[in-house]
């Protein structure tokens, strides 16, 4: 039986969709069978981030309204073995799907897939409720900014009150230079405030924008720091008992020490 993971945040634009795409691609690279669901109905994005926008026939609303079979709506990614997408509908709104329909869909998908990864819309309303309804666990994405971390705290509270225990944090867009100057909160600052565990830290990286331009997840770029960070994160998801050291992220010598100073002894 597969596991259902929701990627959520509260605040928009912090990297949920980017993270969903990369975690999906990363899990499939590790030999897992993965389906991604875009629940941001009306503001569909995951298809373009993955470069699958020209292949959409059916969408999530078609599936829950039973206008097609689930299998018909699965778009297969040709570059990643066993990676599939169920895209959001673009011309409907969040109320076109209900939490109970999402639970039903998730339970059907978990029979065939190792992981179902759900991209959640911003906010705490209907779209959020749909996205988390069928989830077993949650990854909360934040950037190192006051507003994003505050929203993350709110979301962690809501997840727990919906019975999703121990959500983990993904800290995105860290800038080492700024942390070093004391102009950006570091990982320990954020974890202390939120009192949760983290699953990884992704640096702010131009390569993400480049790869998104091309519709290719950055995880496939073996040289990028963000790609390495996502590879580590997916290993932690797929093999929770394995201990993945964070130092692998830095290419060489001097920078390593710096990285250690910035991130403390925490994993990246």
């Amino acid at each position: 039986m597969g596991e259902i993971i929701v990627i959520t945040s509260g605040k928009g634009g912090v990297g949920k969709t980017t993270s969903t795409a990369n975690i999906g691609a990363g899990l499939s690279n590790l030999g897992k069978k993965v389906v991604l669901i875009d629940t941001d109905i009306g503001l569909r994005n995951l298809d373009v981030v993955l470069g699958l926008e020209n292949r959409i026939v059916y969408d999530l609303v078609d599936v829950v309204e039973k206008k097609c079979r689930v299998k018909q709506a699965l778009i297969k990614d040709k570059r990643f073995e066993n990676l599939f997408l169920i895209p959001a509908a673009q011309t409907r709104d969040k109320s076109a799907v209900s939490p109970s329909q999402m639970i039903e869909l998730c339970d059907e998908l978990r029979k065939d897939f190792d992981f179902v990864v759900i991209d959640c819309p911003a906010g705490i309303e209907q779209g959020f409720k749909n996205a988390i309804a069928g989830a077993d666990r949650a990854i909360v994405v934040t950037t190192p900014e006051v507003s994003a971390v505050r929203d993350a705290d709110r979301i962690i509270g809501l997840l727990e009150s919906h019975g999703i225990k121990d959500p983990v944090l993904l800290i995105n867009r860290i800038r080492i230079d700024m942390v070093k100057r004391g102009d950006m909160m570091n990982i320990d600052d954020i974890l202390e405030i939120l009192a949760v565990k983290h699953i990884g830290v992704v640096p702010d990286d131009e390569k993400i924008i480049e790869s998104t331009n091309r519709g290719e997840p950055v995880i496939a770029d073996s040289k990028s720091m963000a790609g390495q960070a996502y590879r580590n994160i997916t290993r932690r998801i797929a093999f929770p008992d394995e201990n993945i050291p964070f130092l692998d992220l830095e290419p060489a010598g001097g920078l390593r020490g710096l990285f250690k100073k910035v991130f403390g002894d925490k994993k990246v």
Binding site: E145, V146, R181, G182, M185
Partner: peptide, 19 residues
Amino acid sequence: VASKDIAANRLKVCIIHDK
């Protein structure tokens, strides 16, 4: 004061308020 410390502090107060 490092701006990150100001941020962390404002954040703590916000969150106490929110809760």
